[in-house]
Design a protein around this nucleic acid. Structure first.
Lengths: 212, 212
DNA sequence: AGATAACTTGAGGACATCCTCAAGTTGCAC
DNA sequence: GTGCAACTTGAGGATGTCCTCAAGTTATCT
């Protein structure tokens, strides 16, 4: 954490305006919004945006990294909950709630962007916690034994489209969708699966494919 | 079916080339591909493409309507299968197989395009058959009773992203994903759902929202 | 207060995609 | 084989987005 040197006061103010604007615009319209729109929303020129954030990823990271970090915290909470199944289900619900509240975050759950090292690091950390959450839920005999780490991505990928499609007309529809999915994850629901799980590397590669 | 008048021979030939090119390009790269790329692939000029297909939807329809019609036939088969649950599960698998084989078709499953009246009509017809498929599977006591017509869309929306993300690296991953989903649909898996189902109109509206 | 480095600005070149249309070409009917 | 309507063509105007940079402005240091 070596701070190279502090920004000049006006520059810092503009930076803050840009991050706040990016949060609003990304949440409402997703990450593919033109950068000019973010600058306009912030009330600064496009040149200033590029001065402060040389790549798209840099701005996304400044706008959304803390939301991802918040989700990692939720994972820690879930990993420590008394009932492991409740922790598992509660965490998935938390994930989807944030996805539903922020379209940009929703997109981050389905794809990896370039130039977002901090977010990538946080995702990796979250991934480790998911291992714990899953392991506990399986040991307690509630989560089906053939659920693997790579299957977690299916949940996010599932709800991404549902959340996006229903945001305007039925903003709670994803809860029903998630309900079905959770029912398929219980030990009592398990039937043999027709294909092997994705390895962690395959998940990573798939997220890089999406929308790129 | 009043045929206004037949195309001139060269025009018909170019039309066929365009449709064939569109099928290849859409399957490989999705429906948002630039129209110039389709024209180039067909070996005709962009002007000819616009002569033959005045709107994007017109070309999509010419390229993909028969694939949608094929799926309607599959639905008819499924609705007549001896074991209603098998019909239900078999149909979902058929849907996903075609989605996985054609990126353009995959996108059609998640969103509605403008100017595709024929495809829209076919979808509506498929929708009716789904009602039958679902009803039979519920009456036979295999599909959970709280599954509603609107929940069918969840399956398509779920697998859309998974198929897209894993097409290059793990082209059968969706089978595992679908396996989980089906396990959540069995009577024995059912737990109370936290939100009401989508009505048919809500599904239609949601599909118009997607990517538009 | 003056000097200087840091910062802001927005016009504009580069690029991609859309769609049109005037000029040229070709199939077809007689 | 002639003539006309049907057809093809691709240059080009319109639009949207990206990113840069030269000129002007402002904070900060002494």
């Amino acid at each position: 954490m070596t701070n190279p040197r502090p920004l000049r006061r006006d520059a810092q103010r503009n930076r803050d305006l840009l991050v706040a604007a990016a949060r609003r615009v990304y949440a409402a319209r997703g990450l593919d919004v033109p950068l000019e729109d973010v600058a306009r929303e912030a009330g600064v020129s496009i040149g200033t945006l590029y001065n402060r954030f040389p790549t798209r990823g840099a701005l996304v990271e400044a706008a959304l990294a803390d939301k991802v970090a918040g989700m990692v915290e939720q994972a820690e909470t879930a990993a420590a909950m008394a009932d492991p199944w409740d922790g598992f289900a509660w965490f998935l619900e938390r994930c989807c709630e944030v996805q539903a509240a922020d379209r940009g975050y929703n997109e981050l759950c389905a794809r990896t962007l370039p130039d977002t090292p901090e977010i990538d690091r946080l995702k990796a950390r979250g991934h480790e916690l998911v291992l714990t959450i899953v392991d506990r839920a399986q040991r307690s005999g509630q989560l089906r034994a053939d659920f693997q780490e790579g299957d977690f991505a299916f949940v996010l990928w599932s709800t991404t489209t549902t959340i996006d499609a229903t945001a305007a007309t039925a903003p709670d529809a994803w809860r029903r969708h998630l309900g079905f999915i959770l029912d398929g994850f219980r030990v009592s629901a398990a039937h043999p699966l027709p294909a092997p799980p994705l390895g962690p590397d395959e998940v990573a590669k798939a997220m890089r494919m999406n929308g790129g």
